[in-house]
Amino acid sequence: MTSSSSLPVVALTLGDPAGIGPELIARLLAKPEAAATANIVLIGDRWLWDEGQRIAGTSVATDEVHSLAEVRGRANTARPAFLAVHSIDPALVQRGQAAAPGGRSVLRVLDRCMDATLAGEVDAICFAPLNKQAMKIGGMQHEDELHHFAQHLGVTGYFCEFNTLGELWTSRISSHVPLKDVASYVSVERIEQAAELIYRSLLANGVAQPKVAIAAFNPHGGDGGVCGREEIDIIEPAVKALQARSWPTEAPFHGPFPADTIFLKAQAGEYQAIVTMYHDQGQIAIKLMGFSRGVTVQGGLPIPITTPAHGTAYDIAGQGKASVEAMWQAFRIAGRMGTAHRLANHAPA
């Protein structure tokens, strides 16, 4: 029997009902080692959980709870807790299609998780893939789920999305914005904030000596100013300002490095994190290096939140062939960071 006093409470959600999320969660929870990692509570529709198990060919027993407040005090965490939440009727789900009912379902369940965060009932959240289009037509008023989380949780400081692949993490100072607007986001303040946030998040993930590389913005790092001055006027001053501060570990920040070579340094093990200037500067490299293993971490929120970096894979939803690897890695990161969160906020009894 595993005591809940030493494990973080990790909330799992089934994701977009029309995508591969339910079958991924079924495969994840069928892993015997999952229950040893966290005090798990699955939140969602009972019929959707059953459907996910049918597709995945699994049979995972759960312990029903009636509120998230019950989860932390469970004496035995060998089986996941299950909180049934009615978010969508089966008749409203058309597998493989982005639709408003599916988006509303995702928002309803995630908001329940946010409320549990504010109440101190969970230590981390790991959600199965969702679809931004479905969420927007379903009522989301923000550009992405990260901004939805931040507003719901009352975040006023800097936050950003991390993408991870094994031991390599990336962050960016601009995200889901048009490419023509990216230059306006390049500032000393944002670079410093993004670099510090990913550095401290790596510490929380158990990395003892994080090394963070800062990417250039222009081709060839600006070629001394003839191909853009952002490196000279903004990025280099930001790196120097970071280097001048005191940190828990030695010399954690370096750069700027041209974006077309920076990932070679990371692959060689020189750096555990890269701060990029815009979405595709890091995402293309990460997805080429390991699309099926990538994880997204929502950084700067009062609780760790993770998800696979891939999408809902509507084209293969329901076929039982979606890889669970990224979902598993997202869950493992949620467990590690949730442990740090638990130790900082809820000392074991």
Rank of each mutant, 00 (worst) to 15 (best):
V297W: 14
E143T: 13
R190S: 11
A238S: 06
L146E: 10
A38M: 03
F127A: 12
S292K: 14
L29P: 04
S174W: 09
V9E: 05
D123N: 08
T117N: 06
K136F: 07
T2I: 15
A128I: 08
G44W: 04
W169N: 10
S292A: 15
I316F: 01
A38C: 08
N131Q: 10
A251Q: 15
I20Y: 09
T164W: 12
A241D: 12
Y158W: 10
V93E: 02
H152R: 15
V109H: 13
D123W: 04
I40K: 11
G166D: 03
G338K: 08
A56P: 09
G57F: 08
A99Y: 09
T77C: 13
T156M: 14
A78S: 13
R336P: 06
L118T: 10
P32N: 06
I316G: 03
R74V: 05
V275N: 00
A259M: 07
V106P: 10
I232R: 15
K265D: 08
I286P: 10
I40P: 11
P17N: 09
S292H: 15
K321V: 09
A208K: 14
Q53M: 12
G154Y: 00
K31A: 12
V122K: 00
F257Q: 11
H148N: 13
I198C: 07
V188I: 13
T306E: 05
A216Q: 02
A18W: 01
V122T: 02
L288V: 12
Q193N: 10
H341M: 06
L118E: 06
G338L: 05
T37A: 15
G221E: 00
G294M: 09
G73C: 10
A244T: 07
R72D: 12
I198Y: 08
V226T: 15
L165K: 07
D123F: 01
A78N: 12
D181S: 14
K321W: 00
